[in-house]
Amino acid sequence: MFRAIVDNIKGLWSLIVGLSITGRFFFSPVKTVHYPRQVVDPESLASYRGPLELVPADDVGGSKCVSCQMCVRACPGNCLTVIKGKEGKAPETYLYDFTLCCLCAACVESCPTSAIRFSHNVYLTARTREELHMDLLADLKARAAKASQ
């Protein structure tokens, strides 16, 4: 009998302790980042694996790729299509299907010339599947054009 009363009082006290904790957190500052009004700081995205991009070799949208097909063969998801151009070793087409990509880095680590890398784009959105079938050469040119402006 006496034990039961003590237990109940202890139990009620534990509820008050719990409520005081949640109450304290209720009035503490917000912890989340309110996108799009706020964004996370770029430092914490430095190693984030976003969709692939080609590494620029020069300022006019050339790539370091030598069309050796190592990345294509390494990829577990068959995301990449690299077709060698008519002259030289530079690729004519470099297609990347982001819908199949598991961001495993097999391609990045097997490339002999370090021609591809992960972008840090966390804000990518798409309305259709086709938007995620990316042409990385076109993307590289667009980036070069934007940078030269």
Partner: peptide, 23 residues
């Protein structure tokens, strides 16, 4: 956040490599 620095991902991590780790 901490794991993302070395693995690049937050959920489905593939960090280990044969004979070491990736970063």
């Amino acid at each position: 956040d901490i794991l993302q620095i070395i693995t690049g991902s937050r959920l489905t991590i593939s960090y280990f490599r044969f004979g070491g780790v990736s970063a």
